[in-house]
Amino acid sequence: MRVNDAIIGLLLIAASIAVFIATLSFPEFPGQRYGPSLFPQVLSTAMLICGVLLVIHGWRNRTEEHWLVLESWTKEPWRLGSFALVIAAVLVYIFASDTVGFIPVAAVILGVLFLWLGTRPVTATITAIVATFAIHWFFATMLRVPLPRGWLNTIL
């Protein structure tokens, strides 16, 4: 996904203005000339300049550089699906892991991804379960990371 530089430039201009406005509410200290807002203000000014330069650059090249270019893989449903599935997997983990627990969520994520990417069902199932328990053992038992237990809490 490639967009014209002018679009990136506009985004930067908007972001830098937002940052600058946010810095205005930072407290000032009496007797001190340089407060916590100075450094972000310098940065956002520089970013504003970069944004303007990118807009100029993108506008000049607007004939060669399209506003939005989608690579060929975005037109193939399977590849697009792989991409979306990775994003979905992280989102599912973020929202479900606390209640459901690490082991079921991780095993399902792995299994679905394996299958989608073309692993045979038996291999996918076995690998998903083994990998989940291996990672759980490594992080939860060896490194004592408090991976969410979720449903296991009520069962055990």
């Binding site: 997997a89 994520i109 991804l113 394996f114 291999t123």
Partner: peptide, 22 residues
């Protein structure tokens, strides 16, 4: 196709381990 999903899980668990939160 086996390696990439496992790395994804590593990324998730690894970043969880740094803050112990979502």
């Amino acid at each position: 196709n086996i390696l990439l999903p496992i790395i994804l899980l590593f990324c998730i668990v690894g970043s969880f381990a740094m803050t112990n939160s979502v």
